[in-house]
Design a protein around this nucleic acid. Structure first.
Lengths: 211, 211
DNA sequence: GGAATCATGTAATAGATGCTCACATGGCTT
DNA sequence: AAGCCATGTGAGCATCTATTACATGATTCC
């Protein structure tokens, strides 16, 4: 057992790991009480540190929120990428996995999802945020292109429009039916099945028949 | 020119119209700075009233927000109902109007939309809210049923699922592309056209061909 | 090894907010 | 006209964001 620096027990005048602990505490608070329920002061208390300490690591509340959103988009892109898995075993099947992964992320990572989509961050705050978001979206777009390639060249729909439709559908279902308090709207089927059916019907409308 | 009671110039120790003025002020603030940017104190200042006065009319900040959301849902149902117009001149065309009305509402009534969908109100706060939301959704569901009726009885899709899909798609597009700061995500077509195309393709997937 | 430096913590504070209380006012009912 | 009571005020507490001056100790450089 090494007494390494990142040992969480490490305490003294200098915390040694405050930035990470603050992010973790903020995420716990967001997950528990929504993006509005998180306060810098409470995160500081959770880290057993004075209320001023967080401002050594984040310019303001928004900067901490943006950090969470940034990590969220990276984690999101990773999760979607794994679900897509280069279109294996088959693009159609992989697209279904992608949809499930979208909703699974929204549900299992409420803090990330809230910071990414519900935090109303000023757009110009962090240009990296936009880039990270684009990378996540790129996975979806790539999947749509692979599906388009199943079609004869003269019948291919525009992959960009297609990816926007599927993104919006997934995001709408996640926001309305799959997240915490929104789940109060009771619907007669699991959000995952709703999304899968929606994508299936949409693809059929495009002329992309299953499997 | 009558000096009626609801004359906005009316001032004395008693305001006479505070509740309405507070709602209007709060909506202005929400429209300008998002749901998080509205404070009771600032609404009170806008109404030229002490910071404690609003609490005679609303139990707390959430109650004021809920009042706005409630009015929003009523206005929303009204707007959707007019757009649908009993399915005239044709259910297919009327559904297009419905989609446009959805996005138009999200854009022209940012305060209502934010209070309705982005305010994270505690669900048990106001049962009327759920009812009002259901009434708005009922318009969409009715429209889907009318479209289903165009199909042979043995091929009709479930109208509820259909309405959930279209609602989610419209809400997703509104949230991601059609609202204020979200409009920073630049896409190569108007949100209205994106939604119309999405609905058209989805309906085609259901076997409902246009017009 | 020791001193200067710099990152990272604290204490104290200002200004804003949510919300509550006791009290003031004056419109409305009787 | 008298009094009830809805509605507004003033004062005040607890909390939060953010800043400033100061304290501490890890790191670097001679």
């Amino acid at each position: 057992m090494a007494w390494s620096k990142d040992d969480s027990k490490r305490r003294g005048y200098h915390h040694g790991n405050l930035r990470e602990v603050l992010v973790a505490a903020a995420m716990d608070l967001i997950a528990a009480k929504g993006p509005a329920g998180f306060t810098v002061a409470e995160a500081a208390r959770a880290a057993k540190v004075s209320p001023a300490a967080p401002y050594r690591h984040f310019r303001d509340r928004d900067a901490l929120m943006a950090e969470i959103a940034l990590r969220g988009f990276e984690s999101f892109a990773e999760a979607l990428g794994q679900a897509w898995n280069d279109g294996k075993p088959h693009p159609y099947r992989a697209m279904e996995n992608l949809g499930r992964a979208y909703l699974a992320f929204a549900r299992t990572q409420p803090a990330y999802y809230a910071a990414m989509f519900e935090s109303k961050l000023p757009p110009d705050a962090n240009p990296d945020l936009g880039k990270a978001g684009d990378r996540a979206f790129a996975v979806l777009r790539q999947a749509c292109e692979a599906l388009c390639d199943l079609m004869p060249a003269d019948k291919r729909p525009p992959a960009l429009m297609m990816s926007l439709h599927i993104w919006a559908l997934a995001h709408g279902i996640a926001s309305l039916f799959a997240r915490g308090d929104a789940a109060r709207r009771k619907i007669p089927m699991a959000p995952e099945d709703l999304l899968e059916a929606g994508i299936l019907l949409y693809l059929r409308g495009l002329g992309i028949e299953g499997l």
